[in-house]
């Protein structure tokens, strides 16, 4: 199964993002991301079904949640 991954600024924002997506009927999972990619250390994000990626992007933006996609 393919996934879309959104990196959030903190674990708290990851949960906030998850709740925002839930309101759009999009299921997501809060996950720990590999911090070695950015060399910034610990990071958290949201994993969504690849098919939901576009709608999830729009939903997070409309909730005012800042993210980067990996």
């Amino acid at each position: 199964m393919k996934y879309g991954i959104f990196a959030l600024s903190s674990l708290t924002y990851a949960y906030k993002g998850r709740d925002a997506l839930y309101r759009y009927d999009i299921r997501s999972t809060v996950i720990r991301l590999d911090g070695t990619e950015t060399k910034k250390g610990c990071r958290f994000g949201l994993r969504v079904d690849e098919r939901d990626r576009d709608e999830a992007r729009r939903a997070l933006r409309s909730a005012g949640i800042v993210f980067t996609e990996t």
Binding site: S9, S10, L11, T12, Y13, G35, K39, K40, G41, C42, R43, F44
Partner: peptide, 16 residues
């Protein structure tokens, strides 16, 4: 703080 651990300062955003 559990986030951005490589940074020498605390995160900018609350709550962390």
């Amino acid at each position: 703080s559990g986030v951005n651990s490589a940074e020498p300062i605390m995160p900018k955003e609350p709550p962390e």
